[in-house]
Nucleic acid binder design. Structure first.
Length: 602
RNA sequence: UGCGGGGUAGAGCAGUGGUAGCUCGUCGGGCUCAUAACCCGGAGGUCAGUCGUUCGAAUCGGCUCCCCGCUACCA
């Protein structure tokens, strides 16, 4: 295989730390699929970055008396630290507050404008004379003129469910400071989704047979039932990417219009940082390339409708603005495997109430693979799931440690003691040995096809089931008995088991990269499987920003061959002294962790 | 209100017309190489509720209830 695979992960909003829900929702599934394709020898580009613009950040800035830039600057390096420690292997994790992203976003805007898909409309918006700026509908509340509910949002009353006309709202007030806003006319650009609708619809229909139902029904279903309406793509805001037109000062591109462009701009930035300014086209104008977008259910529409609409609407205009003499259109999403949400101990995760398990905090107490294991097992692929500390404890001790970790440990430590630290030379294998190896070998196909379809829980469960098969095999052959009567028999059993473990190491690697890497090292392979992440400071006209990069230079995946195959183990090869891959947890952590929840943090 | 997703043993999940499965826990047994780990066996479910279609429904249709999302303080 030598495919180009783009792994595009939702851009976390830089106004709060990242918690387990964010991780299991998008970053981790993206990383698993990225690592799988790297092992297959495919050319993977995995990108994301901090979403540094938008009203939410300006609001938080006002509340804390800081600048929006300061808010973003606080959280962005923390995201990078988290991903590095958790092994989320971004080729580039950057930010929307970069010269490159500004420029690319404005090119997208101008391409759409040029092709006639952006139209100007004047509408009335709430304006706060106190703050001297426009307010989004959701920041204005008042009394519902239909049911009398006193805390209705200006666009919709949650009590009676009616959509409201802003002008009729009684006693409007700003949710920020309680002051009275007024309605003012303002002009904005709208993306013409109604004209693009037929193209979007065929794009979706082509993917109908493999997209998740929640994503498909919310995008294609909406088109088929109510149709698409123009959607505004600019806002009255100072903080963000300026609309690149004369007379539009004080207006910015709407944060969701430009955040999705980050997938494209970060691909370009990755090339620039690596001295290959044109390489982004390998993933963006090569129609054979496949792109996977990992997001949460809350922004399905943006990725399944709005972003494809931007891509379709640009035609070859963007590539032309990137100075390609033979411009081409851009690649549409191959899959958008949106996840549902993860709750915490039965309640919705809430950052402000500290009802959350924060990624960086959890990494201070638990190994990355222990967290990754549970986050995969509890991934909300089909429905909302729950992070439960008791279950984390059980899954870690009874599955990760007991089934897989113990398998590795029992086989390698027994071999270490009885075969002078060398992989035994088995001679002719028995039928039962070959049967086991066939079973495990089939896992490459089974686990792989699950990952291809982004069925990650099923993929991991299948790998774990295979580890159980090896445990059963050991119990039948009992090399600890064999060695007392016939050393050659024990050699066959242990060789077979180590061979199986070496293959399972690969199958577990996308999910548990750190421990697979250590097992790989114990088995005395020269090169590592994967590369390592590094942090770099990049300067441009907007200042400087940290990025997370990936160095594959000294790794096997760099070589581009397919490692997702049953390589035959070298007989008689010395290996390194085994050590436990995972830590058994004490049950007391369950109570300790539960006590932390809901308390104010530092 | 509308659109969409989901509600299956104690927990987590699979299962889109034909005797209800998997993992963990639990109970009993075996084994002892291993982080008291591993292996075998048993118990445990009116498949949210209800009405219907069918020889037969977790699976199809109607209605009801509950949880969640639908352009962003909150993923």
């Amino acid at each position: 295989m030598n495919e180009n695979i783009l792994i595009a992960v939702a851009w976390p909003y830089a106004n709060s730390d990242i918690h387990v829900g964010n991780i299991t929702g998008s970053h981790l599934p993206g990383d698993i699929v990225a690592r799988y394709h790297r092992l297959r020898g495919n050319k993977v580009l995995m990108v994301s970055g901090s979403d540094s613009h938008g009203t939410a950040i300006t609001i938080k800035a006002d509340q804390t008396g800081q600048t929006p830039h300061a808010i973003y600057s606080h959280y962005h390096p923390r995201f990078i630290e988290l991903f590095q420690r958790l092994g989320i292997s971004y080729d580039l994790f950057t930010s929307t507050h970069t010269e490159n992203h500004f420029s690319i976003s404005q090119k997208v805007f101008l391409s759409l404008l040029e092709n006639g898909y952006l139209n100007k409309y004047v509408s009335k918006q709430w304006y706060s004379p106190v703050l001297k700026r426009f307010l989004p509908d959701r920041y204005v509340e008042g009394t519902c003129y239909i049911c009398g509910n006193e805390s209705a949002r200006s666009d919709q009353c949650e009590k009676c469910g009616n959509e409201l006309e802003a002008e009729k709202l009684i006693n409007p007030r700003s949710k920020i400071d309680g002051s009275t806003p007024e309605l003012r006319e303002t002009e904005h650009f709208f993306l013409d989704l109604s004209t693009l609708e037929p193209k979007i619809q065929s794009f979706l229909k082509e993917r109908e047979d493999y997209w998740r139902p929640n994503v498909l029904r919310q995008s294609l279903g909406t088109i088929q039932s109510v149709g698409l309406k123009p959607t505004s793509v600019t806002r009255d805001l100072e903080w963000g990417i300026p609309v690149p037109l004369e007379g539009w000062e004080g207006k910015c591109l709407y944060v969701w219009f430009e955040a999705v462009i980050g997938y494209l701009s970060s691909s370009v930035e990755w090339g620039l940082l690596n001295g290959q300014p044109d390489i982004w086209r390998d993933w963006w104008t090569n129609q054979e390339a496949r792109s996977f977008y990992f997001i949460g259910k809350d922004n399905i529409t943006f990725h399944a409708v709005t972003w494809p609409a931007e891509l379709l609407g640009m035609g070859d205009g963007f590539d032309r603005r990137m100075e390609n003499p033979t411009p081409e259109p851009l690649v549409l999403p191959y899959d958008v495997p949106a996840n549902e949400f993860m709750n915490l101990e039965g309640k919705k995760i809430s950052g402000s109430q500290n009802w959350a398990v924060w990624g960086l905090d959890a990494l201070d107490r638990y190994d990355s693979d222990a967290l990754r294991y549970y986050l995969t097992v509890a991934m909300p692929e089909n429905r909302d799931t729950d992070w439960d500390w008791e279950e984390f404890f059980q899954r870690n001790n009874n599955e990760l440690v007991a089934t897989w970790g113990n398998l590795v440990n029992r086989v390698l430590s027994f071999t270490w003691k009885n075969f002078e630290g060398k992989i035994p030379t088995p001679g002719q294998l028995r039928d039962s040995d070959l049967d086991l190896l066939d079973t495990i070998k089939a896992g490459f196909e089974l686990v792989g096809s699950h990952i291809e379809k982004v069925e990650l829980k099923a993929a991991l469960a299948e790998a774990m089931r295979l580890a159980t098969e090896v445990n059963k095999y050991l119990d039948v052959h009992a090399p600890w008995f064999e060695i007392k009567t016939d050393r050659n028999e024990a050699a066959k059993s242990l060789f077979t088991a180590i061979q199986a473990i070496d293959w399972l190491k690969i199958m577990f690697a996308p999910f548990l990269p750190n421990s697979s890497e250590r097992l790989h090292q114990i088995l005395a392979y020269e090169k590592s499987l994967f590369g390592t992440s590094f942090i770099q400071e990049v300067s441009d006209s907007l200042g400087s920003h940290q990025v997370l990069g990936l160095d594959n230079e000294k790794s096997l995946v760099k070589e581009g061959s397919d490692l997702w195959t049953a390589e035959v183990l070298e007989e008689g090869k010395p290996f390194n002294q085994p050590a436990a891959l995972y830590k058994k947890l004490d049950h007391s952590i369950v109570e300790e962790e539960r006590l932390r929840l809901g308390k104010p943090s530092d």
